[in-house]
Amino acid sequence: MKPSEAAVYVVDDDTSVRQAVCMLLRSVGYRPIPCATAAELLDKLQPEVTGCIILDVRMPGMSGLQLQEHMNKHQLVLPIIFITGHGDVDMAVVAMKEGAFDFLQKPFKDQVLLDSLERALQKDQERRERLKGKFRLMEKLELLTARERNVLDGMVAGKANKVTALDLGVSERTVEAHRARVMEKMQARSLAELVQEMVLLND
């Protein structure tokens, strides 16, 4: 993914900090979205786009930590990199516990922020891809009949056709036929690939 495609939000009430960080990000090809308040961020937020929030901890109105809490509650999932002028250990602990991606002390080295941002975006990207894969798998699963689903469960559980046939009260040949259709509908090239996909679903 190109940096210009990511939605990087810079949330800081201090105008000069906000502008400087944005300029730094632009200098390496990002297209940062500046926000002066937490409310402005919630307004501009595009949850469907891969992104990251660079967030000041202490702001008037909704603070950085409160915004994090709000996003968690509303299942707005985006990695957050906190930046703070108050290297407060307690605060960092709370933020990280609540799932913050990183916690940086102001002023920071550009490379530290850029590295952290890159990793955050990569993580978000991976998460989105995993999610996409999950959706695809669920779509494929919906194509199966109830009987085919039973046979699939037997396959994932590592049962022999004979055992599944006995479980379902059908002939072994019938199970074999179902099995072929399952492989076809799930677009699986091997049993191993199918099992792996199914494990991811439950992840």
Partner: peptide, 25 residues
């Protein structure tokens, strides 16, 4: 100390980021 640090860290952050941005440009 904490208050002063916060107040001074803000402009320092801006200075650093601006300088680094120019540097990269």
């Amino acid at each position: 100390a904490s208050g002063i640090a916060h107040e001074i860290n803000q402009p320092l952050t801006a200075i650093t980021a601006y300088a680094q941005a120019i540097n990269r440009m």
